[in-house]
Design a binder for these strands. Structure first.
Lengths: 262, 262
DNA sequence: CAGGCATACTCGTATAGACGAGTGGGCAAG
DNA sequence: CTTGCCCACTCGTCTATACGAGTATGCCTG
């Protein structure tokens, strides 16, 4: 195994209070930030860093685990540790549910992704009646049973978002909303046809680390948070007619809102 | 050292493909989710888990590091590992910059926190002229120099948010905006007095893991992401008159937006 | 030439041990 | 009683070693 090119990474400072594995992580982070390692590029192997710094393997692995936690790198078994590429982000504008966008036959997700040159896909479609959680029930005005529409969105094969819509059963049962494909304009178009003219939406946004189930569903690398968005749709009568609970891979999204100054 | 109460945590499954440290993390996570360990409560010590499961200490530590990465627990040197309490969250409504909220003498942050019974504080105040980053310059319409206003917000002694406002120098220089305390209603009130009547705001929201500097500034525990919000204020002439770059501790915030359905 | 296997290199998991440093309680000296 | 020290317990850091499992490459065999 050949040694690292000199100058690529510095030396350790034995007089420093900073732990050795942190110093190594600092040097790797800086090298990445400075572009010495580019996106997708392989970092030196554990063995190479062991030789370079004269430390044990666990110390090097400790450094890598810091960078993984920061979302900077990811390890591939049998291959190496790589600088995590920044995936293309999907921009969600606050007017994406405006009535004028609701005329096409295809869903907003498909239209938008096609326009951006990506290959969109929707899978894990599930539509069923169920008992809502306390939180969902409250948001919908204490309903006992709801129609739940679950689906997962993928871009170019990568899962980016998992969403569940909840609708009061008295609104949705027996309508196209209860079908896997609700038709052109989506469920919001159907709700308006059913007499629930939409007035406004409320969106709540949180960010947190994913649960193990979310890591699995969204194929999340370590160090990638999720954005948790809960949208409630209100009709002109002030009734909450839908709650949509969405979990998004945070590295795949930028949310954009336009707000009046009045 | 007395053994753990039996039944608190299960046994390992040696036939499972799942790594031992993951099985231990799973059991601890489940115990936390089920409320067997409450918020702020101490988990069994590393030594106790070593005895209970008959594994080495590094394996137990590995389990803890998983839970730390998920933001579920945090370790305190010399004390133990504790279930991370969910701090009270601050709710940011989308109308928080509406003109009607701009009449009071105190800043929105102070007013809001007082109302919630928290003890707010603002520190690290810095106001200076500087050369903007490429991104900030673009957002402000290719200005060469800006006034930067930096401040950190704390609730009950805990830093929760770090924000920098950038304003074109030709607007802000020599005005109260360039003073540490811009006066009642904040800089938006001053901008309007200067003839820049505000028309609308654009907000961009991202979530990601914090940089080491952000960890330090916001005293973030590991496993806590940040919400990165960039707000641009436009006057009625369509000019971008301010860009505010805000980094928030994600576990301290819920953002809330109200959107028209039209 | 095509296919399969050996091999070297990669990271993943786990053990055992050592010392350091922060915390808190109890005991002993004043 | 108060002060200060010691000690037990906690997590933090680091070493050394071992084996497993995924990947890629090149050589050998058919």
């Amino acid at each position: 195994m050949s040694p690292l090119p000199s100058g690529l990474l510095g030396d350790l400072d034995p007089t420093s209070d900073r732990a050795v594995f942190r110093q190594i992580a600092d040097q790797l982070r800086e090298a990445i930030d400075r572009g010495r390692f580019r996106e997708g590029e392989k970092l030196p192997s554990e063995a190479e860093l062991v030789d370079h710094y004269g430390v044990s393997r666990m110390t090097v692995r400790n450094s890598f685990s810091i960078l993984q936690g920061e979302g900077l790198v990811h390890a591939e078994h049998g291959k190496g540790v790589f600088v995590r590429p920044r995936p293309p982000v999907r921009r969600l504008a606050s007017d994406r549910f405006a009535r004028r966008h609701r005329e096409q036959g295809k869903s907003a997700f498909i239209v938008e992704a096609d326009a951006a040159g990506s290959h969109p896909k929707v899978d894990s479609l599930e539509v069923k009646e169920e008992k809502p959680s306390q939180d969902i029930s409250t948001r919908l005005g204490s309903v006992r049973r709801v129609l739940a529409r679950r689906r997962r969105y993928l871009l170019d094969g990568r899962p980016v978002e998992f969403a569940t819509s909840y609708l009061p059963l008295d609104i949705a049962r027996g309508t196209p909303i209860a079908e896997p494909n609700p038709g052109p304009g989506g469920i919001y178009a159907r709700l308006e046809e059913l007499g629930h003219r939409l007035d406004h939406f409320e969106e709540e946004i949180r960010a947190r680390m994913p649960s193990p189930a979310e890591v699995k569903t969204l194929h999340l690398a370590s160090g990638v948070p999720v954005i948790h968005l809960i949208r409630t749709a209100f009709d002109t009568g002030g009734r909450a007619v839908e709650v949509c609970d969405t979990v998004m891979a945070a590295d795949a999204y930028v949310l954009s809102y336009q707000l009046p100054a009045t």
